[in-house]
């Protein structure tokens, strides 16, 4: 039981780290597109990337929650 809890905690930490790393990269990418992009195209790309990132993060979080609830 203690070992189980321990593994679950490690899994939480890894997942949190992955999501944080992704959103740090996403922030840098969005910053470049909005700050240095010329014209409308970079802004449109930024919005599509942001929407897709939100959706994929949500899906990954739901799968993670499912595993957490299973245990």
């Amino acid at each position: 039981m203690i070992e189980g809890v321990h593994i679950q905690q490690i899994a939480y930490i890894i997942f949190t780290f992955v999501i944080l790393a992704y959103w740090t990269g996403a922030f840098v990418l969005l910053y470049h597109l909005i700050r240095f992009g010329v014209g409308m195209q970079p802004k449109k790309i930024a919005i599509i990337f942001f929407a897709g990132s939100l959706a994929l993060s949500l899906i990954a979080t739901l799968f993670f929650a499912q595993i957490a609830l299973m245990n």
């Binding site: 990269g25 990418l29 597109l33 240095f36 992009g37 195209q41 970079p42 990954a60």
Partner: peptide, 20 residues
């Protein structure tokens, strides 16, 4: 899902470099 996030990021990284 995590792998798709990585693919999504790589696609938009390429698009960003192309756009800039």
């Amino acid at each position: 899902a995590s792998f798709l996030m990585l693919i999504w990021f790589l696609i938009f990284y390429s698009l960003t470099m192309y756009t800039l």
